[in-house]
Simulated scan of single mutants.
Amino acid sequence: MLNFNIKSLKIGNLTAKLPIIQGGMGIGISLNNLASAVANEGGIGVISTAGIGMCEKDFSTNYVEANIRALKKEIQKAREKTRGILGVNVMVALSNFADMVKTAIDEGIDIIFSGAGLPLNLPKFLDKTKDTKIVPIVSSGRAANIITKRWLEKYDYLPNAVVVEGPKAGGHLGFSVEQISNPDYALEKILVDVINAIKPYEECYGKTIPVIAAGGIYTGEDIYRFIKLGASGVQMATRFVTTEECDASINFKKAYINCKKEDIGIIKSPVGMPGRAIVNKFLEDVNKGEKKPYKCLFHCIISCNYRKSPYCIAQALINAQKGDLENGFAFAGSNAYRAKEITTVKELISTLKKEYNNALNK
């Protein structure tokens, strides 16, 4: 067995042997299969709640109940496969945010990760009988401070950890188009910013609040670099897509393997945020104005301007997850083009360990 000279990641009373969180990827990219596989390797596996009810027969007619039912199923299936640490990702921007949070807590999920907005009221869903940890995802020290201050003032609760996500992540980004390429907003800079924002709370209350780096982290060397900068762990998503256990279709995974660096670009999403995706014919047609207005079946994202949108982003992502890239597209991090083959989670973790150790011993 490869010796991995790295500290474990402690979030409250939970200890992950590997300081690696598998990022939540909707719609349907990270479900029970991927999350349980990562948890079994000592990391933290995460189920994305965005559009999780996509395979339920009444998804388009009974959106709220279908998602609640599906989330229960996914958590229960994951629990059957692992004794490791499991989390869910619940975006603040979801129209069913409260239902997803309540359901996850009722199912005894270990951790809730929440971003795509400020989860200012997240602690209100907890009660003294629940042991679910809550972790906001932020893109600045200012956001970390606002959330922590509000949680303390209103709920007497400190974040159990904080994830800071930089502009190289896949999917929707918490940055303006100008900020994405601005070195002042690089993960290296905002990580230190968040650590400094959290430090006074740790000192005042005598508690450790781990800060986890995310966005563009791809190799074990990257893990080593960000832990040296002060991160307690990392969150990785893109690299887990091209594993056998990832819940996406093989065509979705092949989109990663076949893409080139120049194929990955920033798109304007119907939800009003920039996003990083693999640009394909579907997105090119959208840019040409060839897509027609549609009827919104879900209104899944609060900020989505569905009356003026050229396409339904939920349906496009569902199509992609199922392998229909002609009628959808794949969100991806900036390093997706580096994927060359399908591997297993076990093999990937072993590779990350080797890469980390090589960086450590340089």
Rank of each mutant, 00 (worst) to 15 (best):
M91Y: 11
K254I: 06
T132N: 05
N182H: 12
I212V: 07
Q315A: 15
I21F: 08
Y218G: 11
S309M: 07
P159W: 03
S140E: 12
L31G: 06
K73Y: 06
I44G: 10
G265T: 10
A359Q: 01
Y337C: 09
N357K: 07
A213Y: 01
G45I: 04
D99V: 08
E245I: 02
M1Y: 12
V211L: 11
A231R: 01
N357I: 11
T82I: 05
E290F: 15
L118D: 09
E347S: 15
M54E: 11
F59N: 08
S139L: 00
D193H: 05
N89F: 02
P167A: 11
D110V: 09
E284L: 14
K149R: 14
F4R: 04
F329P: 11
A169W: 00
G84T: 02
F240Q: 02
E290A: 13
Q22K: 03
D127M: 10
Q76N: 15
I6S: 01
E56D: 15
E284I: 13
K322P: 10
G171D: 10
A98V: 14
R142S: 14
N67F: 09
P119F: 03
N67K: 05
I198Y: 06
E107P: 14
V90E: 03
A39E: 06
D222A: 01
V92T: 13
R276H: 08
E74F: 00
T351Q: 15
L152I: 15
S140F: 01
E284D: 13
T103Y: 00
N121W: 06
I217V: 13
A66Y: 01
Y218F: 15
G328R: 00
L297E: 15
P200S: 06
S30H: 03
D263E: 12
T343C: 05
V138K: 01
K322N: 14
K268Y: 13
N280L: 07
K130C: 14
G215A: 03
K102Y: 14
V46I: 10
K261N: 10
G323V: 04
D156S: 15
K228H: 13
A336F: 04
V177L: 12
G174P: 08
V234F: 14
L31R: 04
F175M: 10
L118W: 07
G53Y: 03
P19M: 05
A66P: 11
S181Y: 15
G84D: 00
K130R: 15
A50W: 07
K308A: 14
I301C: 09
G166S: 01
S36W: 04
P159T: 02
N62L: 04
F97S: 09
T82F: 00
Y294V: 12
N33G: 09
G265W: 04
S8Y: 08
P183F: 02
V92E: 08
V192E: 09
Y356C: 03
K57I: 14
D58L: 11
E326I: 04
T219Q: 10
D110S: 07
L352A: 07
D184C: 05
V286T: 14
E56W: 05
I266D: 06
V192P: 11
S269I: 00
T351G: 10
A320S: 13
L158R: 07
E165C: 11
P119S: 02
V241A: 03
V101D: 05
N33Q: 14
T238N: 11
N358Q: 13
F175D: 10
F4H: 09
Q315P: 09
R83M: 12
N182F: 06
F298H: 14
A104H: 08
